[in-house]
Computed example of a mutant assay.
Amino acid sequence: MATIGISADGRQKETESMYKYTIMSEDAPHEGTWLAWPHHHTYGTAYRDSIEPVWVAMAAALSGGERVHIIAYDETEHRRIARKLEGSGADMAAIDFVAVPTDDVWIRDTGPVFVCDSSGRQAVVDFAFDGWGRKAPHSLDDAVPRRVAAITGLPLCDASDVVIEGGAVETDGAGTLMACESSVVSPGRNRGLAKEYVERRLRQCLGVSNFIWLKGAIGEDITDAHIDGIARFYDSHTIIAVARNDFADLYEGIDMADYDVIASARNADGEPYRVVQMPLTRKNVRGLGYKGSYLNFYVGNTVVLMPAYGDANDSVAVRMLTELYPGRRVVPIDVTKLYKHGGMLHCVTRQQPAARQ
């Protein structure tokens, strides 16, 4: 396994190889989707059983249009999951398994970040993961990108000098990255590192050149306000964001100035983005004292997986996503039991781009 890394004293080696990779947009063709399957080893069987139907539904929907790579805790879990998927509607010929122990299921934050060079050759970026600022077990999850790189035989770009969770950064595939300072450069993340240094590492590892920074909110959820529940790139000219009228309901401490940052953002060519406003749930999610975001959807090759809450605005979100992605089938998946643990569908999926010819 080839490694592109940092020098022994922790300073970045300025090599051409660190600048040749770029991250693709999520809606670019996938080779497949990686899922870290729920297990009982960290939080018990009740936790696993309550959220596992979400993974069954995702695997069934995705396997019709791409590979589904399932990370199972061990071979015992592999066999259990395979039995669970039989008869679910999943195309088992499109599903494979790797045995890698994990702490939890949030592969968007913990898993491999796939990047490509100009010839379509892929590599895996390994950012450090510290349990969202040491709030949760993380030693197994921190090793997942390295394990996946070894299994797939892809080069590893060692970026373990910075803590970056995948859900904390959103890219448009054309050089722009959007993030909240609260979950990237704050007392809980990358303490002591200047924002300029973190930006430099993101340029080197993801091929971005333009940054849109929101303030976010610290301490109101375990992620400290990940961007993928607030605003998403549709393409290099369009941002989908939580509606202005709902924006203050995202977090008690969020600043409405963050919405103004989104509304006035410009892409890497200096052009303004069009902003599509998507509502939150109309009411608080059942059993919880807050609303749910539909921004945490996942774009597959043939489907869009949409978080659903049994709320009146579910149908609004389905209609909007159907209009935005007319070539894909929108699949609503009830995330109510998952959401109480802090995330939705984008948080538990990670795309691997297709090889380019």
Rank of each mutant, 00 (worst) to 15 (best):
T102S: 14
H41L: 11
C205P: 03
I262A: 01
A94C: 10
G175T: 07
I333Y: 07
A194S: 10
Y325H: 15
Y21Q: 10
L177S: 07
A72I: 01
D126F: 08
G216V: 04
G167Q: 05
V148E: 12
G342F: 01
D117K: 06
I254T: 09
I151Q: 14
E31N: 01
I240K: 01
Y197K: 11
G310W: 01
Q122L: 12
A136N: 11
V56T: 06
L156Y: 12
H39W: 08
L295E: 08
Y273T: 15
W37A: 01
D249C: 03
D224L: 06
A241F: 03
A241T: 05
W132H: 07
F127Y: 15
G44Q: 10
V316F: 12
C347A: 12
K215Y: 00
D142T: 05
F114Q: 10
R79Q: 14
V124F: 06
K291E: 12
R266M: 10
G32V: 09
D9C: 07
S118I: 02
A354M: 13
L305T: 00
V185Y: 06
E26F: 00
G173N: 13
E31T: 01
E252H: 14
F297M: 04
G64K: 02
P279E: 00
R146F: 02
G289V: 05
Y325D: 07
I254R: 07
A317C: 09
I230K: 03
A174N: 15
V275M: 03
R147Q: 14
D141Q: 11
H226A: 05
A231S: 08
G229V: 10
A90G: 08
T302Y: 01
R134K: 14
S160Y: 04
Y21R: 07
S25C: 07
G287S: 09
R200P: 00
L154I: 06
A265V: 08
E77M: 12
G133Q: 06
R121I: 00
V331P: 05
R232D: 00
T302L: 01
R67D: 00
K135V: 02
L338P: 00
D172W: 01
H39N: 09
H226I: 03
Q204M: 14
H41Q: 04
V348N: 13
F297C: 12
P112T: 13
A59S: 14
G175Q: 08
V198W: 13
V124C: 04
V100G: 00
A231H: 05
S118T: 08
G166S: 04
P155E: 08
G89R: 00
T110K: 13
K340G: 02
D104K: 02
E66H: 02
D126R: 13
E16Q: 11
